[in-house]
Design a protein around this nucleic acid. Structure first.
Length: 564
RNA sequence: GCGGGUGUAGUCUAGUGGUAGGACGGGGGCUUCCCAAGCCUCUAGCCCGGGUUCGAACCCCGGCACCCGCACCA
């Protein structure tokens, strides 16, 4: 008995959903092609995602490059945190992280160069902790793919699409008319040079992500009326598993309002794409497994044949990213928070009188005055002393004035916090396949019960037989459907049952059959995948009817009333 | 990357040194054919590269891929 995973992979390859890339050259681990069915499935899934998460909430969609200069990934922390120095045991082959091995001998292991690490290992005679064997030289392992930009600039392939959003924050903030919360979304590929990717399509070196960065004011309350009433399965950091509504989870302080909002939206979304939500949970990360940028992360996990798999992550990234980009780039990554009422700030400040200081200190006068301006104004006018470059300059009391200044302050600048829901698209697609797969009880035929909305192909058009004009009529109908924007295909090979079976296997929700009656009264049969029931529909009503069925405006059961 | 296992048409599989067989699928045809029916017919394979041998799918070495375990997994 084959396991579910082999069955899915079998269908995926045979029917054009996905397969391992570069097969004619033996294949390369961690890279997958989407075939004609998979590519459409992915496209439909992303369209729904855009609708559900981007357009619905008025977020901005952007598209930034895959390759970024080194500085970006230094700022983001990936160059440091995404690289490990490793050694291997020459006899048992086990791999170890150098910082862990030399940690007890060196204060800050990460600060050492590889050569210094090698020296420490040799001097302290560190050997394999498992078998005592000799260790290899230190090698650096980078989880990021590196490349060159032009002749000699180091570039990296992005390990997440997020940085492309962060680096554009100032511009996007202005485009959004300087309003928070501000959500920015990006769909694209990201790259991680995994040491040994297994688990097929679940762990790839090049993969598809759909990410949202929601920039928020940490002092502003989220409008929690937006949290939908959806039951959430929560596995807390402390190991407790509870089911409770998103609202309750928020009110009890288990998750913050943003998390609760997105968790609820995610549950709804998963339901729409065919995931069995009884096999979904949100798992909170333990402190030690949090990414370097994250304060709190909940993974949305889906139970697959291989156990629970992380498919979506919601990370509370705080101000980490913007802060770092501000540091590294010098750009102002802050937002402006208006006070409810303007504040009047009174300040006493020193105003140098240059007509006195000028002749007194000549060329130095200007810099002396600058230091003087920065000093605290004294209660009464006295002689002041300015220390500068080791010399002391005396400022007589008539060489400055004390001015009372009143300034209106209408707000303050701050670095927004970021909430990041991040969707692993390939994993989501695989999960859809596993959760929608079933075998018919009577015949054992394989079916993917993919919701019509995201199914790759919406309809198959079959002539019952290739004769008496049924074939030409069927081709005409195919043409009509295609011209109406319905992705349909034609199949006249094999028996009619075989054609239904072929359609079921890639989740085609509706099959149109042209039979003898079509020639007489202009109706065709529409066969629904899941029930295998058939209903007759006049050809002229077919495009509308199908579109209504696909969009879920009517159910198959309501079809009779609808076409009458 | 290490240890173990596996690799034969698109898929599943038989074949232990004498030159590959089946099933399913796929294409064409026949059959008034509505749930992989039947019949005829075609299609297509020893993962790649070296070695041993008169001769290798089979034995040996290397590589690649997949599976299990270890390590790794923002």
């Amino acid at each position: 008995m084959k396991d579910l995973r082999s069955k899915i992979n079998d269908i995926a390859k045979r029917r054009g959903i996905f397969w391992n890339s570069y097969e004619i050259y033996g294949g390369v681990a961690g890279f997958y092609d989407y075939g004609p069915v998979g590519a459409n499935l992915k496209k439909n899934l992303l369209d729904l995602w855009l609708e559900e998460f981007v357009y619905r909430d008025g977020l901005m969609l952007i598209d930034s490059p895959v390759i970024g200069p080194e500085i970006v990934y230094r700022a983001s922390g990936h160059v440091d945190k995404f690289a490990d120095f490793m050694v291997r045991c020459k006899s048992c082959g086990h791999a170890f992280r150098v910082d862990e091995l030399i940690g007890e001998f060196v204060e800050i292991p990460d600060a050492l160069s590889p050569e210094e690490m090698n020296r420490v290992i040799r001097e302290k005679n560190i050997r394999c902790p498992d078998c005592g064997g000799e260790l290899t030289d230190v090698e650096e392992f980078h989880l990021m793919f590196s490349t060159r930009i032009g002749l000699d600039k180091v570039g990296f392939l992005r390990p997440e699409t997020a940085q492309g959003i962060f680096v554009n924050f100032p511009l996007l903030y202005r485009i959004n008319r300087e309003k928070l919360p501000m959500g920015v979304a990006q769909i694209g590929r990201a790259y991680r040079n995994e040491i040994s990717p297994r688990q097929g399509v679940l762990r790839q070196r090049e993969f598809n992500m759909a990410e949202i960065e929601l920039f928020v004011d940490p002092e502003e309350r989220f409008d929690d009326s937006r949290i939908e009433d959806v039951e959430l399965p929560l596995l807390k950091m402390d190991g407790e598993f509870i089911r409770l509504s998103a609202r309750e989870a928020f009110e009890k302080g288990i998750v913050n309002a943003y998390m609760a909002y997105y968790m609820a939206r995610i549950m709804r979304f998963l339901e729409k794409i065919g995931i069995d939500t009884s096999r979904v949970r949100f798992r909170q990360h333990h402190r030690e497994e949090l990414a370097h940028y994250s304060k709190d992360t909940w993974d949305c996990e889906i139970e697959l044949s291989r156990g629970w798999v992380e498919v979506i992550g919601i990370a509370y990234r705080g101000a980490y990213d913007l802060e770092h980009h501000m540091q590294y780039s010098g750009a102002d990554m802050r937002a402006f928070r208006k006070f409810k009422e303007e504040k009047i700030v009174k300040r006493r400040k020193i105003v140098p009188r240059m007509e006195i200081l000028g002749p007194m200190y000549k060329g130095k006068a200007k810099s002396v005055a600058e230091v003087l301006e920065g000093m605290e104004a004294p209660e009464e006018k006295v002689e002041l002393k300015v220390e500068m470059n080791g010399s002391t300059y005396t400022i007589p009391e008539d060489a400055y004035d004390i001015v009372e200044e009143e300034r209106k302050v209408s707000g303050e600048r701050f670095i927004p916090h970021v909430v990041e829901p991040s969707f692993g698209i390939d994993r989501l697609i695989y999960a859809i396949l596993e959760h929608t797969y079933y075998e018919r009880e009577d015949s054992g035929y394989k079916v993917l019960r993919i919701p019509p909305r995201i199914a790759a192909v919406k309809a198959g058009v079959f002539p019952l037989m290739n004769r008496d004009g049924m074939d030409t009529r069927a081709r005409e109908i195919l043409d009509i459907l295609r011209k109406n924007g319905i992705n349909a295909y034609y199949d006249d090979s094999g028996s009619i049952g075989r054609r239904y079976a072929r359609a079921d296997e890639i989740g085609v929700p509706f099959c149109i059959t042209v039979d003898y009656q079509t020639l007489k009264d202009g109706t065709v049969t529409v066969r629904e995948r899941d029930s295998t029931e058939q209903k007759r529909v006049p050809v002229e009503k077919l495009p509308d009817t199908l579109r209504n069925l696909i969009e879920g405006r009517i159910s198959f059961g309501e079809l009779d009333a609808h076409v009458r």
